[in-house]
């Protein structure tokens, strides 16, 4: 059955996906809120930047992240200055890469949810004496709950399924950066089809179940 090394890959993958999803919900919410409500001319630019990972080959994203996180890159120099050291080929580096890579999968459902609930409930809340933060937490967030569930599921599943970015900036270090998709690649390279089947089949079933949950979710999210 599963060897220790593959089990480690699965646990690492889950850890990466959970961390990434939590960070994405925190980072993606303000971006989505801004995109849903702004009339700024920068809206298009920001929207396009957020959507870039949808169309770019992961290698492109991975390459630039590697360069900028590296010892001569701006982020790399900053992290060295902070005393954190360099991020490539570490778990933290993987998280950074995953956050960028899965950003659109979180921001877009949130943005849609904020847009769908519209301005009216916020206006109502204002006439009832609720200030901007109050309105956000007591009205906008609860109304966007279906969007948050979709965003979390998509962000999590997409991070579990990434490969290219991980390979570019994470490499293949067992228990640190060797995630399931990379492990499958290794098994295939080594012609270990049985092990590859186990992991690949597991991924297939997992992904299907996640999407099944997503698509058959109750349409009345706040009850």
């Amino acid at each position: 059955m599963l060897e220790g090394i593959d089990l480690a890959a699965i646990l690492l993958t889950l850890k990466l996906a959970v961390t990434t999803t939590l960070i994405l919900l925190l980072v993606g919410t303000p971006i989505a809120w801004w995109l849903a409500r702004t009339r700024s001319r920068w809206k298009g630019v920001v929207g396009a930047l957020v959507a870039l990972p949808l169309v770019l080959p992961p290698t492109v994203l991975g390459f630039y992240l590697l360069v900028s996180l590296g010892p001569h890159g701006p982020i790399g120099q900053f992290t060295q200055w902070l005393g954190i050291g360099l991020l490539p080929f570490t778990f933290a580096g993987l998280v950074v890469g995953s956050v960028f890579y899965s950003l659109p999968f979180v921001v877009q459902p949130l943005q849609n949810a904020f847009t769908a609930s519209g301005e009216r409930p916020l206006e109502v809340a204002a006439t009832l004496g609720a200030g901007p933060w109050d309105r956000f937490f007591t009205v906008a967030l609860p109304l966007a709950r279906p969007g948050f569930i979709t965003a979390a599921i998509l962000g999590f599943a997409h991070t579990v399924g990434e490969f290219g970015v991980v390979l570019m900036i994470g490499g293949n270090i067992p228990e640190r950066t060797r995630v399931v998709s990379v492990a499958i690649y290794d098994h295939v390279e080594a012609l270990e089809y049985a092990e590859a089947h186990l992991l690949a089949g597991g991924m297939l079933v997992f992904s299907f179940l996640v999407l099944l949950a997503l698509y058959s979710r109750n349409a009345r999210p706040w009850t």
């Binding site: 009216r120 409930p121 204002a126 006439t127 009832l128 200030g131 109050d134 009205v139 109304l143």
Partner: peptide, 29 residues
């Protein structure tokens, strides 16, 4: 700003908060 004006506003569509009960709606303000 609106939230500092002591007014009540009834919109054309009732625009109740769908995520809380009638009581929750009334207690909000």
């Amino acid at each position: 700003p609106t939230h500092r004006r002591p007014l009540g506003y009834v919109f054309q569509e009732a625009s109740l908060f769908p995520h809380v009960s009638v009581r929750g709606n009334i207690e909000y303000g």
